[in-house]
Nucleic acid binder design. Sequence first.
DNA 1: CTGAAAGCGCTTACAG
DNA 2: CTGAAAGCGCTTACAG
Lengths: 355, 355
Amino acid sequence: MINSKEIAKIAGVSRSTVSRVINNYPNVPPHTKEKVLKVIQEYNYRPNFSAKVLSGKKTNTIGIFVVSLSPMAENTFKVNLFQNFYFGNTVDALIDISNSSGYYSLVQIIYKKDGVSKLVDVFAENRFDGGIIIGLDRKDPIVFDIAKVGLPFVLVHYDEEYLIKNLPQKSKVGLVNSMDYEAGMQATEYLISRGHKEIGFISGRFTNYSTYERWRGFIDVMKKRDLKIKKDYIIRGDYLLYKTKIELTKVIKSGKLPTAFIVCNDDMALVALNVLKENGIKVPDDVSLISFDNISLSEFSNPPLTTFKLPIYEMSEKAFNILIKLIEASKYQEKTFVYSMPMPLITRESVKEDR
Amino acid sequence: MINSKEIAKIAGVSRSTVSRVINNYPNVPPHTKEKVLKVIQEYNYRPNFSAKVLSGKKTNTIGIFVVSLSPMAENTFKVNLFQNFYFGNTVDALIDISNSSGYYSLVQIIYKKDGVSKLVDVFAENRFDGGIIIGLDRKDPIVFDIAKVGLPFVLVHYDEEYLIKNLPQKSKVGLVNSMDYEAGMQATEYLISRGHKEIGFISGRFTNYSTYERWRGFIDVMKKRDLKIKKDYIIRGDYLLYKTKIELTKVIKSGKLPTAFIVCNDDMALVALNVLKENGIKVPDDVSLISFDNISLSEFSNPPLTTFKLPIYEMSEKAFNILIKLIEASKYQEKTFVYSMPMPLITRESVKEDR
DNA sequence: CTGAAAGCGCTTACAG
DNA sequence: CTGAAAGCGCTTACAG
């Protein structure tokens, strides 16, 4: 691979000048610039990344960290991360956004059982300018270890209060959430307004930010409306398709069903839809379903799902923009940047209009 | 951030020795090693990545390139890459596998319209040791530009003959395919053996390796069996859900349907299933469906899909292993490594058993 | 406007 | 077994 020294020699200038041309500095006259550029072009020269970084330039790379359960946690699949709508699309959006802003993305999967050390390692190696972390439990204390390293990072889906309270001074940390509490409330209100009183809940994992918040929204509204939450109608799906099927089947076999379910994601709702149908229960005539995510298949099911859109792209954009701010500025008045993005309701046909 | 010089001073040794300890060289006595390790531990020291690479060490990073249509190509979604089962899971598997082998992954999305320059750039910057490229058209000539850079890379899904013929000598290139031609044949044979004579085909894009090969398998068997391929039964789904719905609806409205469809992926099959049902057509009683991928939802539809598994994890593992070989060895007798992985048939209920 | 020189933080022959 | 020194390929004050 050719280097700047040789380019300089060929172009008849010094390495300093080559460097100035590459970095597009103003203090080089058009003629010289052109001459150098021509040689660069001809030899297909690209400055060596490591040398650039070592001499003090930014890496122009962001680290994307996906924190996952252990590899085999979900027994059916060897690989399950991007199978998952949430992880897959967030990473997708993040890569897309950073790429289109001229940033590279270093994606790293962190298994919970391996702990934080890998994360700290890569942060300390100075391989990227800042990180975005998704998939953490809503109160995972790992965050504070990472904060010690000093590099800026942004969390997606984490408990705001807990974060603010425990973060050391002058941490460069951002947080982006979706308004799951509000969506949970709205889902419940929506069902009630359509005459439902017996409402069930098919949950994800409760250590998960979104499940927890949606659940809070659900119980708060149920209480406010003096409606009873029946234990039998709470199904722990844990975001697992086979588990959803097993648990829902049990409830069906018991002979007692609510008139509507709030389901913590579309995937589980799609499974629920089929399980109900197979048991001769009509959706939405007998049981209504309202869920979250708005995955692409959700509009093609029969009936199509009424669901809350998880604004993944918008959240990722926000997270990236915050990170860039944290990277570029050196000091902040504010301790952290926190944003919460709304989750619009997509009304389709899985909830009965009135009864 | 603390550096090796300071660690050396604190530990009372030279930087050379610190380096030896870090790289786990044999020629340092236990006592010294321990002493240095203790200081490293205490100060949470990690060698600077760029310095390491600049001084000749490997990056221990592989580049993962996902070649995509332009961002807005599929009108429905702003982001569509990992929404896609194939891309999402391949990238997932690749990241997972490389991470667990101690490699970092630099993921880059390349939009076709931006061309190859971005790819060449990052290859020439010496940011990684080798690359894996997915999403290329089956005969995209971009490959030969990349080969010029000289870094080893592995292609997933590409035309073997075309590649071998056009690759310059001593290119360090690998190729991993799935046996789509065989699967296309087997799908057709399977349907025929169950009494089907009128067989339709819902295709992906024909520039795509898998679609093309499956199609070849389909027509070859149909010809061999003296069965007619009716133009009206060929539906161009292009891997697009909305398009699949529109085009299939047209065929249904025409009043003439085959007794079975080979569908180029499960997503489209799921859409087809619903469209057929909505039009009062029973699956598999009236129309059978056989597809490809084996996505997680495929076993939860009603009926569950009979489908060929795309062995994504196995292919990714193969691709990674080939790449490591290419990186580590300096010379090869063989020009390229080529592998083709079988696609097992997962028999479920979307094909009628007999008629 | 431009070049010589120092420096970034490692690794690795080389010499002892 | 171990240290001094050169080198990797850039950038950036500094001097002119």
